[in-house]
Simulated assay, not measured.
Amino acid sequence: MLTGEAMWRLLRAVDEPGNPEIPHDYDHDATRCRFLALAARLDTDFGCRTDRDLWVQDAALHARLDIPEAATRGGEKIYVAVSNFASLAIAGPCNPDAYDSEERDVYFEAEDRRLVETALADLGYRLVDEPKIWEPYDGINTALRPEITWGGRFFDYL
């Protein structure tokens, strides 16, 4: 998982001017194919059918999936969201921005977390430290400021 300065350097590096929803080199078919591979992998790893939100529009978020609480060891629903930008991903219990780092570490059971993080890494996603990205956005797309956060910039509707 990318944390600290390495995470902030990456987020700032992929924050490009122009269309805030997609990067200049965006390939929808490849991004969708990889997301579906992730969903299939997590279906297998958790022995369930993940709930998938594939019909995202007007967003830097590409898609999201939820692993039902009944399939997790920790008894909490787990979400995984992937961005249209730079193979970025966030994951955690419940919903984005639901827990701070300490709470996430309590509610995101270790084996559940390992399975999610391994699947993301194996498919080339770059997992960022979700609780930390809800800082106010101060990037180059001035039209997005001041009401958006870095998490919103890459993982939400714009």
Rank of each mutant, 00 (worst) to 15 (best):
residue 2 L to E: 01
residue 115 L to C: 09
residue 98 A to V: 07
residue 124 G to K: 04
residue 78 I to N: 01
residue 85 F to M: 00
residue 99 Y to I: 04
residue 28 H to Y: 14
residue 21 E to F: 10
residue 118 T to W: 00
residue 156 D to V: 00
residue 115 L to W: 01
residue 18 G to Q: 09
residue 99 Y to F: 14
residue 59 A to D: 04
residue 9 R to I: 13
residue 157 Y to C: 14
residue 47 G to Y: 00
residue 31 T to N: 08
residue 73 R to V: 12
residue 73 R to E: 15
residue 96 P to H: 02
residue 123 L to W: 01
residue 71 A to Q: 03
residue 150 W to K: 06
residue 85 F to C: 01
residue 51 D to H: 09
residue 149 T to L: 11
residue 92 G to T: 01
residue 83 S to C: 08
residue 50 T to D: 06
residue 57 Q to W: 00
residue 104 R to T: 15
residue 71 A to I: 08
residue 124 G to F: 05
residue 59 A to P: 05
residue 148 I to T: 12
residue 83 S to Q: 04
residue 7 M to I: 05
residue 29 D to F: 13
residue 144 L to Q: 09
residue 18 G to F: 07
residue 52 R to S: 01
residue 74 G to H: 07
residue 125 Y to A: 00
residue 90 I to V: 15
residue 95 N to T: 14
residue 99 Y to H: 15
residue 9 R to V: 14
residue 89 A to T: 02
residue 41 R to Y: 03
residue 86 A to E: 11
residue 104 R to Y: 10
residue 15 D to G: 08
residue 54 L to T: 08
residue 13 A to C: 07
residue 154 F to N: 03
residue 93 P to H: 06
residue 23 P to V: 04
residue 154 F to S: 05
residue 74 G to V: 08
residue 145 R to F: 08
residue 5 E to Y: 05
residue 4 G to A: 11
residue 20 P to L: 06
residue 138 D to V: 10
residue 107 Y to H: 12
residue 12 R to K: 13
residue 21 E to C: 15
residue 45 D to I: 00
residue 26 Y to N: 10
residue 140 I to P: 13
residue 2 L to G: 01
residue 101 S to A: 15
residue 96 P to Y: 01
residue 158 L to C: 12
residue 2 L to D: 00
residue 147 E to T: 15
residue 32 R to P: 10
residue 24 H to W: 10
residue 139 G to H: 07
residue 73 R to N: 12
residue 17 P to D: 04
residue 4 G to R: 08
residue 151 G to N: 06
residue 44 T to M: 06
residue 100 D to Y: 08
residue 122 D to R: 11
residue 17 P to T: 08
residue 110 A to F: 04
residue 123 L to T: 07
residue 53 D to G: 11
residue 43 D to K: 03
residue 39 A to S: 15
residue 137 Y to R: 02
residue 79 Y to T: 05
residue 139 G to W: 09
residue 60 A to E: 04
residue 94 C to H: 13
residue 19 N to I: 06
residue 56 V to D: 02
residue 39 A to P: 07
residue 43 D to A: 06
residue 29 D to N: 14
residue 33 C to Y: 09
residue 158 L to T: 11
residue 28 H to F: 14
residue 111 E to I: 09
residue 80 V to E: 02
residue 65 L to R: 01
residue 60 A to G: 11
residue 37 A to S: 14
residue 31 T to L: 06
residue 130 E to I: 10
residue 20 P to Y: 07
residue 127 L to Y: 03
residue 26 Y to F: 15
residue 52 R to F: 00
residue 81 A to W: 05
residue 101 S to Y: 08
